[in-house]
Amino acid sequence: MNIFRLCGDMSHLAAIIILLLKMWKTRSVAGISGKSQILFATVFTARYLDLFTSFISIYNTCMKVFFIGTVYFTIYLIYMKFKATYDSNHDSFRVEFLIVPVGGLAFLVNHEFAPLEIIWTFSIYLESVAILPQLFMISKTGEAETITSHYLFALGSYRALYLCNWIYRYYAEGFFDLIAVVAGVVQTILYCDFFYLYITKVMKGKKISLPA
């Protein structure tokens, strides 16, 4: 464990908590893409299959349980509890255009052609594009609530911090995982446009409103 990865995990944790607070406090899921949350649930389920087979640390197990639990709770809030406030018309990204290529790529490019490894690789590739339905929804509605912007900033920062973690681990431990790094770079690049808007607008107290 290193400071970059710890900050990354805390940023990821903060994003999930911010999202839950937004939903619970406003009793609304307006502006939140249910499809992205379903993709994140798929990512966590696929990645944490080893939850019961390989024990890394208490921290690792607790975080995995928390991530899986909260993402399914988020889906419950979107599609059941606050269903009336879910904006399905604007949440229209075709996720099959993500899942099929990512699934194919996981079969072709992985560290080891073994079931658990291919599923892990699938979760890494899927996570790098899982935010697209959410960013697509914001571009369609033309705006994002400030609290949603904070959620996205924390979520984008988490993988950017993981990139720093991988640089550190490369020099400190000789650790290098090309698949995770490439997917992490793609994932972070997808947020760049949003990071720019966040820093130039939200940090100055303005709201993010894209030219519709």
Binding site: R5, D9, N60, M63, K64, F175, D177, A180
Partner: peptide, 10 residues
């Protein structure tokens, strides 16, 4: 460099 077995990151 070796990649991580088992995957020890979240």
């Amino acid at each position: 460099c070796e990649n991580n077995k088992p995957h020890d990151e979240l």
